[in-house]
Amino acid sequence: MKALTAAVGWKGASSLPFRDLAPPGLLVLLVVIVEIFAPGFVTRDTLLMVLGDTAVLFLLATAETFVILLGGIDLSIQSIASLASVLLAQLLPILGGFAYPVAILAGLVFGILSGIVHVRLRVPSFVATLATGGVVAGLALLAARGRAITIEEGGRAYTAFVNATLFGLPSVVLLSLAVGLAGFWVLRYTRFGRYSVAVGAGEPAAWAAGVNVNRTKITAFAVSGTLAALAGVVLAARLSSGSPSLANQLMLPAIAAVIVGGTAITGGLGNVGRTAVGALIISIVRVGMTFIGVNIFAENVVFGAMLIAAVAVTIDRSKIAIIK
């Protein structure tokens, strides 16, 4: 067995036990390091705060997981989240609580649009979503007239529940938990979930086996858009503000969370549980950087480097004939 592992060489690093155990191991290690530098980190209150701050990142990363699992990428999630935040902030005074479904529905619509552009026009997903992301960003700017919109006193009655605590847990943590469990269930036990893994693992084989590849892809982009909008809505409610650039800094951490969690960028391998671990790693790194004294302005450097490192380790090179 050992000889066999040696013979495959570097592939050993991306073999299953490593892929499964490395991210949780890294998470525990990071928590221990932060606790050493800042004793008192591992307390109920601090951990709940970290969980609460991770919620939006986790929702965005879950959105991205569905697309990356298929072997694609969604670069429009930040624009969709920002648009949803603007819609929520503007519609709360008019529609009250119904602003939530409207804002989230907008995400669904643009997710489906990305999917259709990608599948019907046969455009690579990163270009399709760069384009739809541009369309959405323009609409968000237009809807907000280029400004940030504060959710006034009247609207805050409808955002209070997002910032509330239920059963001793922040409600955003409960929401993330619900989305996480639903995502896990969908990917593991529904036909769509299994098809997603199949398409990501090998599109021609999935197609030959009768999987409706196009419908699976469009559904994945629809889920991604919906969850991105949900993240935008939660973010707006937490900050009591909606803005066309609200989520602009959140796409890279979200993609990094997916990859660091162990989902392969090449598709076919990964789930929402890994993404939860990845999102927590990103959060702890962010918290840890301030404790260890890394300048917060440099955090993008750290995330960019982590992204490259994680892709290099998790990528399945046997699936790519020519790396372009």
């Binding site: 890279l252 992204l307 490259i308 790519i320």
Partner: peptide, 13 residues
């Protein structure tokens, strides 16, 4: 040996 969109997404940030 990483696809360019991932490599350059990293260097972008």
């Amino acid at each position: 040996r990483i696809p360019s969109f991932m490599a350059t997404l990293g260097t972008w940030f």
